[in-house]
Simulated assay, not measured.
Amino acid sequence: MNKKTGLKEVIYIGIGGMVGGGIFAVLGLAVSLAKVGTPIAFLFAGILALITPYSYVNLSKKYPDKGGTVKFINQGFG
């Protein structure tokens, strides 16, 4: 099977590299700072990460536009 790598595959490789490498770098820093509290710190960060899409959904309902984050910043700061 001779399949070429397309844009979608390259994006997945890039995301995998950033997330994969980033988690190990952050884990080392978190352990050195939080020590035994590292699991609690990751749980707290996960909860905050779940709140972010909720905010984006509400902003998208209020300001329906294809501009995304840029549109929200322009609405907030002019």
Rank of each mutant, 00 (worst) to 15 (best):
V26E: 12
G46W: 10
F42L: 13
V31M: 08
G14V: 10
K71R: 15
I15T: 08
K8N: 12
L33Y: 13
G22W: 02
V36P: 02
G78S: 14
Y63Q: 00
T38A: 05
N2C: 09
S55A: 15
F77N: 09
Y63I: 05
G67A: 01
V31C: 03
Y56D: 01
G17C: 10
G28A: 08
L29T: 15
A41P: 01
G22T: 03
P39Q: 07
A34I: 06
G17L: 14
I11Q: 04
G78E: 11
G68L: 02
V19E: 03
G21F: 00
F77A: 10
A34F: 15
I11H: 05
I40E: 03
K4Q: 15
S32L: 14
K8F: 14
G68T: 02
T38M: 09
G16Q: 06
K66Y: 08
S60C: 02
L33W: 14
A41R: 05
G67T: 04
T52P: 02
L50T: 10
L50A: 07
K61R: 11
S60G: 09
N74P: 12
T52S: 12
F44V: 15
G14R: 05
Y54F: 05
G68N: 06
I47G: 09
L50S: 10
I40T: 05
A25N: 09
Y56V: 00
A45T: 02
Y12V: 10
N58C: 03
N2W: 13
G28N: 09
Q75H: 11
V57T: 10
K62A: 08
I23R: 04
K61Q: 04
K71I: 10
L27Y: 13
T5Y: 14
K61W: 08
G78Y: 11
L48A: 07
K4A: 15
K8Q: 09
S55R: 09
G22N: 09
I51P: 10
V26D: 05
F24I: 10
G46E: 12
K8I: 11
G20P: 05
A34E: 11
A41I: 06
S32R: 15
L29W: 14
Y54C: 07
N74S: 11
K3L: 07
N2Y: 11
V70A: 14
I73G: 00
F24V: 09
K66G: 04
K35W: 08
A49K: 01
A25G: 12
P64D: 08
L50M: 10
G78W: 11
G67K: 07
I51R: 06
K35A: 15
A49V: 07
N2P: 02
A34H: 13
N74M: 15
I47H: 09
Y63E: 00
Y12N: 13
K71N: 11
I13R: 03
P53L: 01
G28H: 06
G67P: 03
Y54E: 01
A25S: 12
K35C: 14
K66P: 02
T69R: 08
